[in-house]
Simulated scan of single mutants.
Amino acid sequence: MAGPLLETKPSPADPPFPLARLRARGELIEIRAADLRFTAEETAVNFNEVMEAALKAQDVAALEARTEGWVAALQQAALSVQGRNDIAGFIAGFTGDDRYIVDYLVEEVLKRQPEPVPRFLLQTFIPSRLGGSLCDAVTGQAGGKAMLEVLECGNMFLVTLDDYRTWYRHHHLFADVLQARLMDEPPGWVAKLHLRAS
Results as ranks from 00 to 15, higher is better:
Arg37Pro: 04
Leu161Ser: 08
Ala78Tyr: 01
Gly188Ser: 10
Leu151Asp: 03
Glu7Cys: 04
Glu42Ser: 02
Glu52Asp: 15
Glu41Ile: 03
Cys153Leu: 15
Arg196Cys: 06
Glu152Gly: 09
Val117Pro: 06
Ala175Ile: 08
Arg21Val: 10
Phe90His: 04
Phe38Ala: 00
Ala137Ile: 00
Arg25Pro: 01
Gln141Asp: 10
His172Arg: 14
Phe17Lys: 15
Glu152Arg: 15
Met183Phe: 02
Ala65Met: 12
Asn85Tyr: 13
Glu64Tyr: 00
Leu110Tyr: 05
Leu122Ile: 06
Val138Met: 05
Thr124Val: 15
Trp70Ala: 00
Leu19Ser: 02
Glu185Phe: 00
Asp59Cys: 00
Glu152Lys: 13
Phe38His: 03
Ser133Phe: 14
Arg129Gly: 14
Arg37Glu: 04
Ala73Asp: 10
Ala72Leu: 11
Lys111Ser: 03
Gly132Met: 09
Gly83Tyr: 14
Glu7His: 11
Glu185Lys: 00
Ala146Phe: 14
Thr95Cys: 07
Gly131Asn: 15
Ala33Asp: 03
Val81Asn: 05
Gly140Cys: 12
Arg196Ala: 13
Val45Phe: 15
Pro18Gly: 13
Val190Ser: 00
Arg112His: 08
Pro118Thr: 13
Leu22Thr: 09
Pro114Arg: 05
Gly96Ala: 12
Pro12Ile: 13
Leu28Asn: 12
Cys135Gln: 04
Glu185Gln: 10
Ser11Glu: 02
Gly69Cys: 03
Ala57Ile: 03
Lys192Ser: 02
Ser80Ala: 10
Ala137Gln: 10
Lys192Tyr: 02
Trp167His: 14
Ser80Met: 14
Arg21Ser: 09
Asn155Val: 06
Cys153Arg: 12
Gly3Cys: 02
Ala88His: 04
Asp162Tyr: 02
Thr39Ala: 01
Gln113Glu: 15
Glu68Thr: 00
Gly140Ser: 04
Ala53Asn: 00
Leu161Ile: 10
Leu55Ala: 04
Arg129Asp: 11
Val50Ala: 14
Val138Thr: 01
Gly89Met: 05
Pro4Lys: 07
Glu185Ile: 01
Arg84Phe: 09
Asp14Ile: 09
Glu7Met: 15
Val81Cys: 11
Ala88Asn: 05
Asp103Arg: 15
Glu7Ala: 07
Leu134Val: 15
Phe120Asn: 08
Asp97Ala: 12
Glu108Arg: 15
Trp70Val: 00
Thr8Gly: 07
Pro118Asp: 12
Glu27Met: 15
Gly132Lys: 13
Gln75His: 11
Arg165Trp: 03
Ile29Phe: 05
